[in-house]
Structures are given as C-alpha cells and as structure tokens.
C-alpha cells in the first residue's frame, strides 16, 4: 500500500508538470496586452521596459521555468514564513497579479475562505441528505419513496445550477423576500442576530450546490446498496437472526460505503469547478468569481495560478480516492 502511494505520488509530478505546461502554453497564445491600458502618450521604449518589468521580455522556456520556481519554491517558502515568522523567501520574486500588482497568492488566500465555507458546507449537507435517501431507496426498492427519490435525483442531476440558482432567487428573494439574493462576504458573525443573517444568506447557495451533489451521491449510494443487499453475507446475517437494523445499517451500509467514499473524494474538485457558476449567480466573491474577473481583465498570472490550483485539487483528490479505495476494500491490492 505504501509503495503504491509513493508510486502514485511520484506519477503525480509529471502529470502536474504536463498540466502546468498546457496551461502556460495556452495562455502564451493570449491575444491581450497588459500594456493596453497604458496611455498612448507613453513612448514605446518606456512601454517596452514596463513589459520587461512584468517579466514578458524573455523567451517562453525561461518564463515557464521562472513561473515553476515561483509557484513551487518561492510561494511555499512564503507560506512557511507567514506561518512561523521566518524569513526564508525574503526578497524573492513572487507571482504578481497584473490587475492589482500584489502577489497572486495573497489575493487567493483572501478569497479561498468564502469558497471553502460555501462549498464545504454544501458538500457536508449534501452527503448528510444523500446517504439516508440512498439507503432507504435501495432498502425499499420500487416503493413510492424510491420512485419519488429517483425522480427527484434525476431532476436535480439535470437542472443546471445556473437555472436552479436563478429560480430560487426569483422565488425566495424576489417573490417571497425571505433570503437575500447576494451573498455578503463582509458580514461578520458575532451574536445571534448576525448568525441568523449569515444562515439566511447561506441557505440558497448551499442548497443549490447541495441539490446537485445530493443527486449524484444518492444515486451511487442506492446502486451500491442494491449490489450489496443481494449478497450472500446478507442472507447469512439474517439467518443468524440479526435484527434488520443491524443487517442494513451495520453490515450492508459499511460495505456499500466503500465505492461511495471514493466517489465523494473524486467529486470534491468538480465541486470547486461547479462553484464557479454558483458563485457567479449569488455574487459570492470566492475563487471562482476571482477567476472570471481575472479572465475578463486579462490578468494572466492570476488565471494561470487559479487554473493550476484547480488542477492540483483534481490530481490530489484522484490520488486520495485511489488510496482510500485500497485501504477500505481489502479485496483491492495494488501490488
């Protein structure tokens, strides 16, 4: 298991390098010019020097290498500096945003809590809803609950978040006026009333995200439970005289959770991607919204870094899912 994990970790390095190269080369083709906003009265040679100051004068491979060094060496050092108060990265060039002229990672660090808060809560809510639905649907297969559950999950699976989000805004904030349509990230929770306000503004984005995740996970949960309910060990457990609750919730549920746990792990990066749309609908200023504004403003270092963070998340969670599967299922051995 350990060798497998190490091998997968080593294999992740060329994958990430390839992805960073793809992203870098794609952005290399970008038609935009960071000097487009500079007044025409600035002479061309000054513009040229400004461009060089942004690090644009050098050939492609040199810039790619510099970006790699900045991303994988300088930024982690900076993180250590911030955490432990050391001065390892003193005076080293960081990845700078062209929009705000401040380090990209600082802006990302400001934005990530909002995204994590909304996405994370949505994911937990979705899992908590999905698993009981899946278990009960499978246990009472073809009952009215199962039929309704299958239909609702199919709808939740098919309705895109940019429609369900807009729909709940129309219903609950325009018509009923229960919840605010815009997520206010400057809001601070310090007493009960502000907590209620926070709860109110979180309900809609969280539920929209959760609807989609719930649909996927509960479908998986149901299928996996159905696979296991027909197994011999279930009959054995019943024949031993165990109560139905123990059979279903202890024996079957545990075994059915194995594939579901990996699906949950695999879904996390996709949720960050999906959050781009939800953030746009509810005006949450998280990293998805940061990415959209950066693309529109032609802020290449920012786009590069954010896209790469998404890629790292995908590779990381694929790895976690594989390892988890090996740990949870003793039948799987990667040797």
């Amino acid at each position: 298991m350990l060798t497998f994990t190490i091998r997968r970790l080593l294999l992740a390095i060329p994958t990430l390098l390839f992805i960073s190269l793809v992203i870098f080369l794609l952005l290399e083709l970008a038609p935009g010019d960071p000097m487009a906003q500079v007044p025409l009265t600035v002479p061309p040679e000054v513009k040229e020097r400004m461009r060089e100051a942004l690090g644009l004068g050098e050939p492609v491979h040199v810039r790619f290498w510099k970006w790699l060094v900045q991303f994988f060496w300088v930024e982690p050092l900076h993180l250590i500096d911030n955490l432990f108060g050391t001065a390892l990265a003193e005076g080293q060039q960081r990845v700078i945003s062209w929009q705000s002229r401040s380090p990209v990672m600082d802006i990302v660090a400001q934005r990530i809590p909002q995204t994590l808060w909304v996405v994370g809560v949505a994911y937990i809510v979705a899992i908590l809803i999905a698993i009981p639905i899946g278990v009960y649907s499978a246990y009472r297969q073809y009952s009215w609950f199962d039929q309704a559950g299958t239909f609702i999950t199919m709808v939740g699976f098919s309705v895109p978040p940019f429609f369900s989000g807009v729909l709940v805004i129309v219903i609950f904030s325009v018509n009923l006026g229960w919840f605010p349509s815009i997520y206010d990230t400057t809001h601070e929770v310090n007493d009960w009333d502000s907590f209620v306000v926070q709860l109110k503004q979180m309900i809609m984005p969280v539920m929209v995200l959760a609807l989609q995740i719930t649909s996927q996970i509960s479908r998986f949960m149901r299928a996996s439970m159905l696979d296991n309910l027909g197994q011999d060990y279930v009959r054995t457990a019943r024949a031993k005289g165990m109560t139905e609750r123990v059979v279903v919730l202890l024996h079957v549920l545990r075994n059915s959770m194995i594939p579901v746990v990996t699906v949950i792990a695999l879904g996390i990066p996709a949720i960050f991607g999906g959050a781009i749309i939800t953030e746009q609908v509810f005006k949450v200023n998280g990293i998805g919204q940061l990415l959209i504004t950066a693309i529109q403003a032609n802020d290449l270092p920012m786009v590069q870094t954010l896209t790469f963070i998404f890629a790292v998340l995908i590779v990381l969670f694929n790895l976690i899912a594989d390892v988890l599967y090996g740990i949870l299922d003793p039948r799987i051995r990667y040797d």
Binding site: T15, F18, I19, V22, I23, L26, L27, L29, A30, P31, P269, G273, G274, I276, L291, I292, I295, V303, L306, T307, F310, A311, L313, I314, V315, N318
Partner: peptide, 20 residues
C-alpha cells in the same frame, strides 16, 4: 486520457473561448 481527466475543464474552457 488520465492527463485529460486531470485538466480543470471549466476554467480551461473559459480561457480557451476568450483566446480563440
């Protein structure tokens, strides 16, 4: 195929649309 599966699709699509 694994490499393509590891690409962050939506961000890349947004960038590519803008570029091309």
């Amino acid at each position: 195929t694994d490499l393509f599966l590891a690409l962050p699709i939506l961000p890349l699509l947004l960038v590519a649309v803008l570029l091309f």
